[in-house]
């Protein structure tokens, strides 16, 4: 295993499969009455969030604590960075405090790569700009694998034949990039459902421009968050029109089969892309995505920082 997790591309198919296997071990730990193991005792994980994301930070923090790592949180608003300290200065300062891993969330694509160049500390990308969100992709794969009970591991198995529709703002979405890549590495067919204004300028994915074209032919319906500010950039004329073309409305919900998994990376924009109560969708695995986020983030921390020995996962710790 590399010392860092920057993207699904760099993790590769074998690494992805291994992370899913390790996530199974972590899920087992999390089912115990006392879900805490000594695996990372003495290690310090620093969550460095240059962009607010309470949910992702809490997920990483919980994962680290269940592995007995110490955690530090460093939140930096962009404005304080503009007071003259370079990104490099900021991370070198934190590194000098003695940490074993950085969990980096940054609004600028590529920031975790830059940080990886400047320090020798493990870097875990918790989302960079429009670019990548590898732990989201891992938790998505883990969620689909578990929900469909597919035997995918380092020894084989795949999502062959699985039809995935990824709906919404692909262009600005690190989730879309990473999760699409992970699905494809495992053999699924991914279709992007999006207007041209919300697609990357150049790509070779299959695209349809209206959710109705595919809604009856998918196994996984993955809705992306539609951000209000996209309207001011004239990328869509109006959110109402967006919902009409790309939202999961009650009419569309009635057309999808009961087997269809409905996913969302959160936070949901209710009434926009999610125009139904997700609790009433039989195939919604949105809450499982959140739960599995802890499993896969524990797996990532364990693989990058742990001794590699599964012994450290046995026996609870009271420390």
């Amino acid at each position: 295993m590399s010392r860092s997790l920057l993207s699904i591309t760099e993790l590769g198919e074998t690494g992805l499969r291994r992370m899913l296997d390790t996530s199974d071990h972590m899920a087992e730990v999390n089912r115990r009455p006392n879900p805490k193991v000594p695996a990372l005792r003495g290690k310090t994980v620093c969550n460095v969030f240059f962009e607010d994301s309470t949910r992702t930070r809490l997920s990483f923090e919980t994962a680290a604590k269940r592995l007995s790592a110490d955690t530090m949180n460093f939140s930096v608003s962009q404005s304080s960075l503009n007071k003259g300290e370079s990104l490099r200065d900021t991370v070198e300062t934190i590194a000098a405090m003695g940490v074993d891993a950085f969990v980096i969330r940054h609004g600028s694509s590529g920031a975790p790569w830059q940080i990886g160049e400047w320090t020798s500390i493990s870097v875990i990308n918790a989302g960079d700009g429009w670019h990548a969100h590898p732990t989201q992709a891992l938790l998505d794969m883990y969620t689909v694998r578990t929900a469909l009970n597919r035997p995918i591991s380092v020894d084989g198995g795949s999502f062959d034949g699985l039809r995935v529709a990824m709906v919404g703002d692909i262009k600005h979405s690190r989730v879309a990039r990473s999760t699409t890549e992970a699905f494809k590495l495992l053999g699924a067919n991914v279709t992007w459902v999006s207007p041209k204004t919300l697609l990357p300028p150049v790509h070779d994915e299959s695209v349809v421009a209206n959710l109705d074209e595919v809604i009856e032919d998918v196994d996984v319906l993955y809705l992306l968050r539609m951000q209000n500010e996209r309207m001011s950039e004239a990328l869509v004329p109006h959110l109402r029109e967006y919902t009409a073309r790309f939202g999961l409305t009650p009419e569309r919900a009635a057309r999808i089969g009961r087997h269809v998994l409905v996913m969302h990376p959160g936070p949901m924009n209710r009434g926009v892309e999610m125009a139904v109560d997700p609790g009433e969708l039989p195939g919604s695995v949105i809450n499982q995505q959140v739960t599995n986020g802890i499993n896969v983030r524990m797996a990532v921390l364990f693989e990058l920082l742990g001794s590699g020995s599964e012994n450290s996962l046995t026996g609870n710790t009271e420390s």
């Binding site: 694509s109 670019h131 990357p200 150049v202």
Partner: peptide, 15 residues
Amino acid sequence: HEGSCCSHLGLPGWP
């Protein structure tokens, strides 16, 4: 530059 690289890297493109 706006092209396949910027699309992949998630960086805003200059067409």
